[in-house]
């Protein structure tokens, strides 16, 4: 028996909106630790790892580890029917072939339940070791989204370089080139407007902008994004999910031609 009650149901809507373009079908894994997911895009170039810790739920009952195979676009359709302020409860029996989403309005005057068919999904889990990164950039998530969107109008790839000057996002295309440099800046009115660059070594990596733009669908979840870079390793683009977890996107760097 699984029963997860999330007071901030709107968070789950935002989580699904940030996943559904990258991944079609995925297994949600439920354990005592929390509600999690690891899935790759169809070309196995990008991966998303979601964790919503059990403590973040108002009620979290998971009698035994359970894996729920869901079509993310169908799940997003169902969650779209919840109000942004609704309390969302996810329910499933141990041997269930469906999952129930229950939506309660904040003043309890409307209660809806939606039942969605589950599916069997063969998923490959990758072991992702904890890594020390050469550079970690924390910046406003909206700024990062704007940069990725702007650069993708000019080129297909972005070179992200971190030096002591700051972080540079560069692209080139048929019409020309573009470079955007963001400097370390903590003298801001609000902490979420800061750009914090921690650099052990200079690093420069090339990534497909198509995936970066897909990751920025998570922008409504968090004011800040963390971009962790090391030579010859996938970049990690992380958004916090309130105080209860995170969504991390991994993208393999392109090999320099």
């Amino acid at each position: 028996m699984l029963e997860l009650r999330l007071v901030q149901g709107g968070l789950l809507k935002k989580v699904l909106d940030s996943l559904k373009d990258l991944v079609n079908d995925a297994n949600f894994d439920c354990s005592a630790t929390g509600f999690s997911l690891q899935a790759m895009d169809s070309s196995h170039v990008a991966l998303v790892a979601l964790l919503l810790r059990s403590e973040g739920f108002e009620h979290y009952r998971c009698d035994r580890n359970l894996s729920l195979g869901m079509n993310l676009s169908n799940m997003a359709k169902m969650l779209k029917c919840a109000g942004n302020d609704d309390i969302v409860t996810i329910k499933a029996d141990d041997a269930a072939d469906s999952v129930t989403f229950m939506f309660e309005s904040p003043n309890q005057d409307k209660i809806a339940d939606f039942d969605m068919k589950l599916m069997d999904i063969d998923s490959e889990h990758l072991g992702i070791p904890e890594a020390e990164f050469q550079a970690i950039v924390r910046m406003p998530s909206a700024e990062f989204a704007r940069i990725c969107k702007d650069l993708s109008t000019i080129g297909d790839t972005v070179v992200i370089s971190v030096t002591k000057e700051g972080v540079k996002f560069s692209t080139r295309g048929d019409i020309g080139t573009a470079n955007i440099v963001c400097r370390h800046n903590t003298s801001v009115d609000k902490p979420e407007e800061a750009t914090i660059i921690e650099m052990e070594e200079t690093v420069s990596l090339t990534f497909a902008l198509r995936y970066m733009n897909s990751f920025t669908k998570a922008t409504p979840l968090a004011n800040q994004v963390t971009i962790s870079l090391s030579s010859d390793l996938p970049v990690v683009v992380e958004y916090k999910v309130a105080e209860m977890g995170h969504i991390r996107f991994y993208l393999a760097p392109k090999i320099e031609e």
């Binding site: 170039v45 990758l126 070791p129 393999a252």
Partner: peptide, 14 residues
């Protein structure tokens, strides 16, 4: 594209 490796080039299958 040829210059785009897959994630399995970096992380092992569990």
């Amino acid at each position: 594209a040829d210059n785009q490796p897959r994630l399995s080039a970096f992380f092992a299958l569990k």
